[in-house]
Nucleic acid binder design. Structure first.
Lengths: 158, 158
DNA sequence: CCTCCTGAGTCAAGTTGCTTTACTTGCCGA
DNA sequence: TCGGCAAGTAAAGCAACTTGACTCAGGAGG
């Protein structure tokens, strides 16, 4: 089962991180698609998390996603056309428009959350709950070391 | 320094992995650019690793990078124009062309290697050498659990 | 020999998801 | 009331791919 000396152990940390992320994310996408949400990609889930609750403006969304407001606007256009969000008038007025989730989107968030937790539970079973906890701790320290207090947005590109 | 309860500890493993990877890679790119190679992105380094030594055909490269042979061909065109690779006649004949690295490319590989190791040493100092070793071990197990024996190519997209 | 097929490589066009540039439009403060 | 900021929109451009269609070298089989 376990190798004496896995050749992977010699590869770069960066490569290992990238591969781990890519594999976990691919499995996540696969399961979410299997649960009937094959029309949404991870970036949509990130957007939904920003918009959940009271909602947000396109510009706020742009800022949180680390893209231009035009790109965020296009994303909202697409999600609105497909019934995942609505644009409401914003209480603060101006040209502001409040983008809020529809039930369709909160459904997706619920499914994605269940899939993430299920996946993590499986990983815990596979590599050991203690090891997974350590992995999280070490990753957290790594991220804090490189990013400090303010976390940058997670972007779907290198 | 260390928090009693870092809010990051509650975020999804997937998010943590993605952020860790993105931060390490960004720092890598920053340092490689600082060392004078700002015209090459990580994907070029991956290509160089495939082509190092005896070289490879475009189709092999495509396979290893997980892209179409057209995309690999375009990448080779670009790298050839900029003096990083040469196309030679292939010993096995046919329409095959052997793509090999120039010294310019091996120089880049050397720089990238030094940067990676320097970065990893810094991380070891910051989070502890033992914790880094554990992180590597756990990541290796995670990757093996999800990928089995054959590792998929690392792709610059979600 | 000839023919057919396979696999490497190339050419051209289309797609996606952004960016840059430029503009419109509410509101607020001097 | 005028100037300017900030949100939003519109249009065009661009990078890095893809799909589809082709060319061409070298066997394998007849």
């Amino acid at each position: 089962m376990t190798r004496d000396h896995d050749p992977l152990a010699d590869t770069e940390l960066t490569f290992l991180l990238g591969l781990g992320f890519q594999l976990v994310l691919a499995e996540f996408v696969r399961r979410v698609a299997e649960a009937g949400h094959s029309d949404l990609r991870p970036v949509h889930g990130l957007a939904f998390q920003v918009l959940r609750g009271p909602g947000a403006t396109s510009s706020e969304l742009a800022d949180r996603l680390g893209v231009t407001k035009q790109a965020a606007g296009q994303l909202v256009d697409d999600l609105e056309r497909r019934g995942y969000v609505r644009r409401q008038s914003h209480p603060d007025g101006g040209r502001r428009r409040l983008v809020v989730l529809t039930e369709r989107a909160t459904d997706h968030l619920a499914v994605a959350g269940r899939v993430l937790h299920g996946l993590e539970a499986e990983i815990a079973a596979a590599i050991g709950a203690g090891d997974l906890a350590n992995l999280r701790t070490e990753l957290t320290r790594l991220v804090r070391h490189l990013a400090g207090d303010s976390l940058p947005p997670l972007r779907p590109l290198w």
